[in-house]
Simulated scan of single mutants.
Amino acid sequence: MIGSRPNNGWAIWLTFALGLLLSVAPMPAFMEIGRPLWLALFISYWTLYLPHRVGMGSAWLLGVAADVLYGTLLGQNALVLTLVAFLILLLQQRLRMFPMWQQSLVLLVVLGLSQLVQLWLNVLSGSPPPPTLPFLLPVLVSALLWPWMFVALRSLRLRLQVN
């Protein structure tokens, strides 16, 4: 693999576009509170398994796109997704060795920290703070979704030989 040309980078950006679409797709009201953190999950996977292709710069660009899409304070989601990418890069060597359930637990902590930073930024920007416990529910849903996300993205990566 060393010295080979990058292959099928479009698949990475296609999954990021899918993450942006899933993050704004309409859901029933009772499910809206537990919407998974799709962008953070996609960034986590690609940063974990292709750190030479996806990193903090990609996370920042995706975060700015999310800011524009959501109409939030410019740079808010960029900061949060960059934090997720940084933490995953920091733990990358260990995370790849962990079994799936431990990866989910680490991701629970990383995404929990990112949601708390998001909550802090919301309060600093003048938005009324939402209740903290329901604000953290997407973190739990995302951590439970991680094994399925991992299997789907891994099969995509291997089938398309993304490197």
Rank of each mutant, 00 (worst) to 15 (best):
A11Q: 00
A29C: 03
L20F: 08
M27H: 00
S23V: 10
P26N: 02
L39T: 04
W10G: 11
G19K: 08
A40Y: 05
L18A: 15
L20W: 03
A25V: 12
Y45C: 07
F42T: 09
L37I: 15
P26F: 01
F30A: 11
P36R: 03
S44D: 09
W10E: 13
P28N: 05
M31I: 15
P26I: 01
T15S: 14
L39I: 15
M27T: 09
A40P: 04
A17I: 10
L21F: 14
T15P: 00
A25N: 08
P28F: 06
P26D: 07
N8Q: 14
P6M: 10
W13R: 00
R5K: 10
M31W: 15
L14Y: 03
L37S: 04
I43P: 06
P26K: 04
I33H: 04
L22R: 02
M31P: 10
P36K: 02
L14Q: 01
L22W: 08
F16Y: 09
L37H: 09
A40D: 06
Y45T: 06
F30K: 00
W38T: 04
I43A: 08
I12S: 05
F30D: 15
W13L: 14
L41E: 08
L41A: 14
E32L: 13
M31V: 15
M31G: 11
G9M: 11
M27Q: 04
W13I: 14
A17T: 07
N7H: 13
L20S: 03
P26S: 01
W38E: 07
I33S: 08
L41G: 07
P28C: 04
F42A: 10
R5T: 13
L41Q: 03
F42G: 05
P36S: 00
S23M: 12
L39N: 09
L37N: 09
L18N: 10
L22G: 03
A29D: 12
L37E: 14
I33Q: 05
P28T: 00
Y45S: 03
A29P: 00
T15A: 13
T15H: 05
G34Y: 11
M31Y: 11
M31T: 13
I12V: 14
E32Y: 10
A11E: 01
L39M: 15
M31F: 15
M27A: 08
T15V: 15
F16E: 02
R35L: 05
Y45H: 08
M27V: 13
Y45F: 10
P36I: 01
P36G: 06
P36Y: 02
N7M: 13
A25C: 12
M27S: 05
R5A: 11
A40W: 02
G19C: 15
A11Y: 07
I12R: 07
V24G: 07
W38Y: 12
T15R: 01
F42S: 02
L18W: 14
R35I: 09
W38G: 03
S44N: 06
I12D: 02
L21K: 03
M31R: 02
P6G: 01
I33K: 05
L39R: 04
L21Y: 13
W10Y: 13
A11P: 05
P6V: 11
L21C: 14
M31E: 14
M27G: 06
A17R: 00
L14K: 06
L37G: 05
